[in-house]
Design a protein around this nucleic acid. Structure first.
Lengths: 132, 132
DNA sequence: CTAGGGGTTCGAGCGCAGTCTAAGTCAAGC
DNA sequence: GCTTGACTTAGACTGCGCTCGAACCCCTAG
């Protein structure tokens, strides 16, 4: 798979994928005869994973640490598991924060709806009055 | 309340609060005799609100739009309500994304735990063998 | 043989959201 | 009167994560 296709499938741009390779977040890609990057399916799986971690607010530096451990082999499994567990806790906190935000939004929205209702009521009342 | 106290209560720094005022995200603060900013309790309420919006991923530019509408008075209520409803939908999407991430993390963590269990098992087996 | 449409590299630039420095002012306590 | 410490300003700087441009290369189809 060429870089454009991987880009389409992952939702990134070729520029970004090359950038990820430059900084060590993606493994150095194999090349075809023309010197073009040639990806296997695991590349897409890895991009998908880091996409999840990104949406979980993991900074690139931490993903680099994780990727480095991965390259060092299975002995680093416990260290990687510890990182993921720590991140898991943070994700749960984020979810809790977003839920709190959601209820703040709901309260504010309800407030605006109430204002609108009062406004409508006044209009209805004056409409009735002028109809009388 | 002086800026340092507002900073402590809000979790921001005085620098950041002044920055917010500079860009129009905070109203221009009243001053005391010495020319120092003097805040009332509504300042803290506003900071708390924008903190929620920030954690919901709202960019400052959008908060500025909201703040501008607010300054324009009650007639902009419906416009503000529409913004909040749009943001509410995004927050729900974010929560869904984080939940997906959570289950990705759980799967990976379970994978690491399994590896560890297999590793332990091999050790136990060889320990038994050498004990025989 | 040429045009088009991929791809390549290197390096500069950008947008966001702060963050910090320097130089100065002011009020309070010793 | 002097020090201390919190405050003021304007403006430069930082860190993150891309994003883009320029110049070049290579294959394919017409």
């Amino acid at each position: 798979m060429k870089i454009a296709q991987l880009a389409r499938r992952s939702g990134l741009t070729p520029h970004t994928i090359r950038y990820y390779e430059r900084i060590g977040l993606m493994p150095v890609a194999d090349r075809d005869g023309a010197g073009h990057r040639d990806y296997g399916p695991e590349a897409l799986r890895w991009i998908t994973f880091i996409g999840h971690m990104k949406s979980a607010g993991m900074p690139i530096a931490e993903m680099l640490r994780y990727a480095r451990l991965r390259r060092q082999g299975p002995a680093t499994g416990p260290a990687r598991a510890a990182m993921l567990r720590a991140r898991r806790a943070m994700v749960q906190q984020q979810i809790a924060a977003l839920r709190a935000t959601l209820s703040v939004l709901d309260d504010k929205i309800a407030g605006y709806d109430m204002e609108r209702a009062e406004h409508d009521e006044r209009n209805t009342a004056s409409a009735r009055a002028s109809a009388t």
